[in-house]
């Protein structure tokens, strides 16, 4: 593996400077992964990690990823809420990395809600 130094951060800094503005509040979408005890035990960390890889792979610079606590539906974890600016938020349940990847492609990029994975549309609006 190539040895990475802290100096590499400076190279990246230049590379991403233009896209950085987008992450400072002018985002198009926000994905909240529920990271309560129940979520973590059910695999929420792997879901968020998989989501980060998808975002990098698909070069999505206008998507914010954040976490929240338990939403009270522990048996349906891992869960995530997808909010597209101007659209009602959608809560997805029983997630897997594969489902999350499909949500990124279909919902985040194309704007199509995946009803088969969704619990509800229109709750917990924070964006």
């Amino acid at each position: 593996m190539k040895k990475l130094k802290i100096g590499d951060l400076e190279k990246i800094r230049e590379k991403v400077r233009r896209t950085a503005v987008l992450r400072q509040g002018k985002s198009r979408a926000k994905i909240t992964v529920h990271m309560g005890t129940c979520g973590i035990a059910a695999g929420a960390r792997e879901i968020l990690s998989g989501l980060l890889s998808e975002i990098k792979k698909k070069k999505l610079n206008d998507v914010i990823v954040t976490t929240s606590g338990c939403a009270g539906l522990c048996s349906r974890e891992p869960m995530a809420t997808v909010e597209i600016t101007g659209k009602p938020p959608v809560k997805y349940v029983d997630l897997t990395i594969e489902k999350m990847s499909k949500i990124v492609t279909e919902h985040i990029i194309k704007g199509n809600i995946l009803n088969e994975y969704a619990l509800a549309v229109g709750s917990e609006r924070t964006h």
Partner: peptide, 26 residues
């Protein structure tokens, strides 16, 4: 320290996160 080094570029950028992960693993 990392934020100071990044000098304005946000630490939650995918490229930065990947680099940091590799660094921690190493």
């Amino acid at each position: 320290y990392l934020k100071r080094k990044l000098n304005g570029v946000l630490i939650n950028q995918p490229e930065v996160l990947e680099l940091l992960k590799k660094r921690i693993l190493r």
